[in-house]
Amino acid sequence: MERATSAPQTPGESPAACAPPRVKVVGVSKTFPTPDGGVARVIENVDLTLAEGEFLSIVGPSGCGKSTMLRLISGLTPVSEGRIVVAGREVTEPPPGVGFMFQRDTLLPWATVSENISIALELNGTPPAARPARIAELLKLLGLERYADYRPSAISGGMRQRAALGRLLAYGPELYLMDEPFGALDAMTKMILGRELLRIWSQDAKSVVFVTHDIEEAVGLSDRVIVMEGPPGRIKSEYRIDLPRPRDFRAVRLLPEFRDLCERIWGDIGRHSEAE
């Protein structure tokens, strides 16, 4: 493998580098009222830009506000100060074309795998007649054909998360917001699903904001990694990941540059912890 030097925010056949950013976060802060009547500052003055087709990861210790950041971008939680623009429109409610994936699979327990995926098709306006074919296609893509009629409780955690990914893909968003989607999985499943995510992403080149506490996962997947510290959550540093694309999620870990990047990011977070 040879090292790629080109601008990493336009991977694959992603179009024009001059396209407007998919997400723009300007001076955003978030406060929550605390039970004792005070105010907790969870996010403090964050600026960040996500280019079209870019894969961005946010890492940081737990409680640093990275999940909150994702909820703010998704419009599920309103900002307290500053503004967030997604696809040119200021976010005041969940914007169109944004898919969210949680650490928990959040599949409806009373619905089968197919039915769970079907709900996303219903919500994005896919006509009923076109749904079965699309569902079958996604089940095949994710290796879930056998489990189409299973309820979530009857399949493994990895399969459930695959189904949740299927639902996300079915919705067909332009922006994926993923909150530690593989965080609850065992190491092996995590590796396999990370690899599939990379494979799928390299084909459709959507924009992704991926929150994780796993630095190797972040470096392996992303074009750029942002390190957050907090509370209150701030951006501490930013790393451009110039590892070659397309990447093999596992093999890329053998590159010295990969090790080097992980070490530097770890050093960053480590210093932060020592400072406490």
């Binding site: 409610e93 969940p94 169109p96 949680f102």
Partner: peptide, 13 residues
């Protein structure tokens, strides 16, 4: 489950 509702809200249900 709050997360179920949030998930649906994120898809503009």
């Amino acid at each position: 489950d709050r997360d179920h509702i949030d998930l649906m809200r994120s898809m503009r249900a």
